[in-house]
């Protein structure tokens, strides 16, 4: 009876067109209305505002009324000496971050996976995951406290070995290391969860077979664990490579000071300062647009390459 009705319905669906389908499930479209309105207003409407990157925007004249200037601001950006410096800083910081943040979570995940003592395993997992919940403001202020040349715990510890105190936050050459490794400290536990999910998905038979062959634990990790989590690694890599030009505004902005400006100015902080502090909105929008387009191309390219190489892609 039920089967009959379902089949009848399927036949009906095929016979009638789009509108019958829509009418039969009109409530789904009503539900979808709220997120559609929100995404249209807060995500797509600003895309229309991008045209001010090609105009001389003045708040008085509005977006429509302002005069077109074509590529003036793009040319201005690329002919300034600052552009290379900023793009370079952005790339170096995010690539360094990307490379440093891959191995640690993987090692942590494998180590946790091999730990037989459940209580210890749970405690390590809980502790290493915790920093993920600490806000960027607090992380950066912890960095400032810890690296303080007088009271910072890092200088106190290195002082025990007779190493003279260093004002790490005030040294440009330390900026990248502090940024990247505090990031690893904060997110390694979170990242490990993802790889542990992949590790638990490995078929048990593989380990059985390895056991029969007398493989050691090192060998099992090398020949089973690592190859099996490779797809997950490549997905994480695509996700992160696609964000290479999108390095987070929040943390970099907080860590900036006069001493590290030469290496810490990245695209997002520059866009913010030009646009909303100096109120040169058209110039800022132009730089932002260039950045977004580069990002989009990067995501698409990395995705295509990954699909060809390993059959794993995002879309």
């Amino acid at each position: 009876m039920a089967m009959g009705k379902t089949r009848e319905k399927q036949v009906q669906r095929r016979r009638h067109g789009l509108w019958q389908d829509v009418l039969a499930h009109w409530q789904l479209y009503v539900i979808l209305l709220l997120p559609l309105v929100l995404v249209a207003v807060f995500n797509y409407a600003p895309m229309y505002g991008i045209i001010i990157g090609f105009k001389d925007f003045s708040p008085k004249k509005g977006i429509m009324g302002s005069d077109w200037v074509g590529l003036k601001y793009f040319i201005q950006f690329f002919s300034s000496s600052k552009s290379l410096n900023i793009i370079g800083n952005t790339l170096i910081l995010s690539l360094y971050s990307l490379v440093a943040s891959i191995p640690v979570p993987i090692i942590l995940a494998i180590a946790l996976n091999e730990m037989n003592n459940r209580v210890f395993k749970k405690s390590v997992q809980m502790v290493t995951y915790a920093p993920y919940f600490i806000s960027t403001v607090v992380i950066v202020s912890m960095l400032i406290q810890f690296t303080d040349s007088r009271l910072g715990i890092i200088n106190k510890l290195t002082g025990l070995f007779g190493i003279p105190a260093v004002n790490y936050m005030g040294k440009a050459e330390w900026f990248r290391h502090l940024y990247v490794w505090s990031g690893v400290w904060q997110s390694a536990g979170y990242g490990a969860v993802i790889y542990m999910a992949a590790l638990t998905g490995i078929p048990f038979e593989l380990y059985e077979a390895a056991k029969i062959d007398g493989a050691s634990k090192w060998r099992k990790i090398w020949s089973i664990d690592l190859p099996m989590i490779l797809p997950t690694v490549s997905i994480m890599l695509i996700l992160n490579l696609g964000q290479v030009m999108n390095i987070g505004f929040e943390k970099v902005y907080l860590m900036q000071n006069a001493a590290n400006a030469q290496v810490s100015e990245v695209v997002s902080t520059y866009v913010y300062k030009i646009g909303l502090v100096k109120m040169n909105m058209s110039f800022s929008t132009a730089i932002n647009l260039f950045n977004s387009v580069v990002n989009l191309v990067l995501v698409a390219a990395v995705n295509a390459i990954s699909k060809r190489l390993s059959d794993t892609g995002l879309f």
Binding site: V39, M47, I52, V271, N288, L289, L296
Partner: peptide
């Protein structure tokens, strides 16, 4: 199509100033 509408926001956005103006 609906999926694409939402997913695309992960890849591209209007940027700081246009959102501020909005």
């Amino acid at each position: 199509a609906f999926n694409v509408i939402f997913f695309f926001t992960m890849l591209f956005n209007g940027g700081i100033v246009p959102t501020y103006l909005l």
